[in-house]
Design a protein around this nucleic acid. Sequence first.
DNA 1: GTCAGTTATCTGCCGATATCAACTATTTCG
DNA 2: CGAAATAGTTGATATCGGCAGATAACTGAC
Lengths: 305, 305
Amino acid sequence: MSHPDSRIAAVRRFGRFYTQRIQALREAYLDTRFSLAESRVIYELATREAVTATILGRDLGLDSGYLSRIVRRFEADGLLARERSEGDGRTRMLRLTAQGRAAFAPLDARQDALVADMLAELPDAAAAEAVAAMRRIETLLGEEPARGWLLRGLRPGDLGWIVARHGALYAQEYGWNQEFEILVARIIAEAMETFDPACEGAWMAERDGVPVGSVLLVRVDDETAKLRILLVEPSARGLGIGGRLVEECTGFARRAGYRRITLWTHSVLEGARRLYARAGYRIVETQPFRGFGQELTNEIWQLDL
Amino acid sequence: MSHPDSRIAAVRRFGRFYTQRIQALREAYLDTRFSLAESRVIYELATREAVTATILGRDLGLDSGYLSRIVRRFEADGLLARERSEGDGRTRMLRLTAQGRAAFAPLDARQDALVADMLAELPDAAAAEAVAAMRRIETLLGEEPARGWLLRGLRPGDLGWIVARHGALYAQEYGWNQEFEILVARIIAEAMETFDPACEGAWMAERDGVPVGSVLLVRVDDETAKLRILLVEPSARGLGIGGRLVEECTGFARRAGYRRITLWTHSVLEGARRLYARAGYRIVETQPFRGFGQELTNEIWQLDL
DNA sequence: GTCAGTTATCTGCCGATATCAACTATTTCG
DNA sequence: CGAAATAGTTGATATCGGCAGATAACTGAC
């Protein structure tokens, strides 16, 4: 994959870059009547219909006591109204008044202007790319990484992804050497050169636009299909992706008229073995195997359809 | 890509996202003896050899009076030394002492750990993409983007990366179909199965822990080597990476005693052709070629050593 | 229903943070 | 040389922001 340390360094450098250059955009509050914290509070209030102080404090990372004072000041200035909520007598719903919105407008406009100025300095394509990159970061690092994922066919780059992730993950998790990655490249090349969509299949699992799993089903003979290179990224395990990939192969093989599916795995691959067992596969043969810098035990599993 | 207004909104949303989620990374200073401002100061001091207070204040956006006090505190604690600079009697060069570096180390480690934790939660591809996106933003918005990169040997996952990026980039830039990605997988598999480190080489260019280029030099016969699958990511072009990769092959081939290097390319690949020409290669043969869903013209180039 | 425990909000307290302006020591420039 | 600019220091001061304790309201177990 690549040296994690230099990724860490890159993220930290971005942090410094950001606080130095982009952070200026958050300073729109200067020469307004608001402090930074106040401007963040009024932004949230203007964006939402009504909030409780606790939620506001949690979202903005503000101390409840500090926030309480800000709210009191805003109320005294007529910028917001507090109403006891009917459901819970402890909480008060905070809501901007018309006057509050009027006070927010210039701040909001100023923020827009600062951002617009920054973007205007860039060629259009560069601005578009920068914005796209920001969106991408949000998606990738976002709070709740969508539990959603999808199954799709192959796209350019997927074959290489399969090779790369097999190489990197098996090296990391089991210490297998480069022989294995080379073997996967050969398997992929040979399988795809003779690929027949009528009786063979390849599926990728994708989450947030990033591949997180793969599987191949190839023809051996009229009655036998072979499941190959099943892989699920560690970070995407536990979502049922592996099971779904195996299932997809089973369904496809049935429809294509095969009588059985075989596959080849190793006794050390606990997770994969559990998947196969749960899908009804049984071990039909084992044999010692020396390769990838290891002493392994090969297993051939089979599922009768 | 989109309406300027929605770009502005996207940039502002990213600002909020960042201060909420990533900003946590800047809070490594909590439970250390330093305040946020102090931790930023000591970071800068640890990174640079020696600085004046004014430069430090400008770079970090700190008030000179405030900074002066921080510096005095650090000096009292023995973390830094001040020496009158010989050129200008007004300025004092600030420099961390050994004790200062020792005090910085745990803070630095903590920052690294926080970032590492964050990245570890992501699929590898997602982490790589997020880092690349950050880097992209820096390049696009930054004053002068860091131009650093390095040349290294193969690591797990690199072979797959080569296949993936060839597949994805040639599809995107020239519309080549999957045949090409499959061919690259085969080339890689065959080259690596018989790889002989004594007379063959493989190099990756890496930036911020992310691969951005590759090249292979393989043996044809005792007198002839072949340069293959040269690639540089679009985002890393213009840094001289391509030229350096070609040069690395030339040097290696000379040392290994080859008499010539040949390579195989296509007339549409303008950038690569310019590189070869500049390195002294000459076209020795061209022939029409149908493949990858295109009508192309193959070229064989050669460099006599 | 009672009571212990929890949650939402407010208030007092107070050190740390950060800003402004005045001041000294040098340097630079006309 | 003298005025203006620059580097850095210091004093005064506002306010930021975190903590602890108080109060009121809710929740769940019994």
